[in-house]
Design a protein around this nucleic acid. Sequence first.
DNA 1: TATTCGTGGAC
DNA 2: TGTCCAAGAAT
Length: 374
Amino acid sequence: MLSCGLPLRCVGPACPSGCLSCRFPLCGRSCHRRGVAAIVSDKLLQWYDAHARDLPWRARPAEPAPEPYRVWLSEVMLQQTTVAAVKPYFEAFTLRWPTVEQLAAAPEEDVMAAWAGLGYYSRARNLVKAARAVAELGAFPDTEEGLRELPGLGAYTAAAVAAIAFGRRAVVVDANVERVVTRLFNLTDPLPGVRKAIRTCADTITPEERAGDFAQAMMDLGSSICTAREPKCLLCPLANDCRARAEGDPAALPVKAPKKAKPVRQGRAFWLEHDGSVWLVRRDGKGMLGGMRALPDDGWSARGDGADNYPVDGAWQPLGLVRHTFTHFTIELSVERLFVDAPPPGAGLWWPTATIDEAGLPTLFAKAARLALA
DNA sequence: TATTCGTGGAC
DNA sequence: TGTCCAAGAAT
């Protein structure tokens, strides 16, 4: 086996010269670690310059950074959400609210409705809060620490916005980076325990310059080459530096803890109709689908079935069953209809059924509406 | 650290 | 059809 002849104290990807003897824990010293890391980040940036995806919220490589508002908005939308799903929402939001000040001035209800269908609705609630905080401040914070104070910005998003919008050196770790780094360094311990090691390793290859491009390059690599299933190692610009490829199994990383089974819950949703309109309520505060418009229901949740209690007495007509799977449980929702002359007790509003698509219903209730109007 | 938060596409 | 998965945050 060829040796590169450098001190055997380094960490990180295999030596670019082919040396496979540099497999030692992080020494943190100025051995040739820096040299190896710089080569890796340079290779990745060169690959990015040639292969970066063209996305609505993104500047082309080496171009001036896009507006912080667009970076922030896209990053929040992209949390646990695919690029394809985000695109139309990003276009709609930036068209309707071109600046963070305009978003800050919008009624929360309108923002929630515009977010309907995208999921994880606490993001929309925090989006409004953060926009108002930024409007109050006069501008986005331009450091990772400052951004971290805004609601809805965790470690990942604060680092990403700091790097992409403000050119700060920040260690940006998302699921793509976790996958790339566990493979590049052959980190075989399971998530989430391995996260500290991932961060340490990601830090070693994060460059001082172009940290934003580097972060996006890692994400593009993770989404197109270093994919969860069947990674395309033959196309990978870092193949020769990848320790999992040399000595392990890239496709088996990262190792994850087994998942819990999802319970199936039963519940009812109530379609109260009067004069061509349906009665909609607004779900309260924090929990599941919090703040979203919805059909009245019988109190089902992730923890239990509905209580089988109807909002008003009458000859309710069962219309069918809607099955919908959330992250941690499945709901079988019986949709039942009653024609009434007066609104039920409690807050709500009559919404014309002809324009139900514009009510901003989350997907479960949009399915129920589709059933009721079929 | 573990759980609770959506949704739609790929396979 | 079922399972996995995605630019995570808050608690």
